[in-house]
Amino acid sequence: MTGPVRRTTRPPALVLVLAALGLAVFVVPLLGLIARVPWSRLPELLAGDVVGDALRLSLLTSIAATVISALIGVPLAWVLARMEFRGKSLVRGLVLLPLVLPPVVGGAALLFALGRRGIVGGPLNDLTGIVLPFSTGGVVLAATFVAMPFLVITVEGALRNLDARFEGAAATLGASRWRVLFRVTLPMILPSLAAGLALTWARALGEFGATITFAGNLQSRTQTLPLAVFVALENDRDTAIALSLLMVVVSLGVLIGLRDRWWRSW
């Protein structure tokens, strides 16, 4: 019986102006980028060697970082959600640190720890011959460092919200711990797990600071898309723009994939 809600008060004009400015901060750079795209040369630019190498390397390392995050980040989230222990808030703080730490600092820290003379890197090198800095493995590690917190906090939140009685019910039905985990716990948090993985992957794909600090900028080995954009800006603007457009498209794809979870459910 009631029609659409009618606004009885309009927000002050100043608020609208400031809001428009706020939106402009996001929109203007994108428009600027799109305005400069050399559309006719785009296929040729994207087919270039540097672009192909960077794209391949970015996909490889971001997917590897996501898989590693799933393997070790989900158990970490489980421990944070389900176990009580001293120093838990410290552990959670350490997990969240990469979210606020400048990535360059993260990269430097990785270098000191895992560099050839680092406290872990030295022995690792002596024992196995593995060298992480300035290698593709180093790119994966840097991306994991900055991206995994997204997975841990998303999954931890989902596990906390999951009613433990479902797992209890499964146990009374004779399900082993592993069966409970794979048939009840993980399927029930699947939407959050998927969202966490998507965010982790997107963050890994865009990683720059920690990567260039820890892994350097070697084409086909450590030069990911963001690094290639940075280099191309110096000497080949059109390639830089083409690469940037590629990343915008990928990022939009992730957002659209998560829209039901992040945009609408508010």
């Binding site: 209890g168 019910a169 146990a171 009374t172 004779g174 399900a175 082993s176 711990r177």
Partner: peptide
């Protein structure tokens, strides 16, 4: 619980 065989 998994080994008790009690239906709930």
């Amino acid at each position: 619980a998994a080994d008790r065989h009690i239906g709930v």
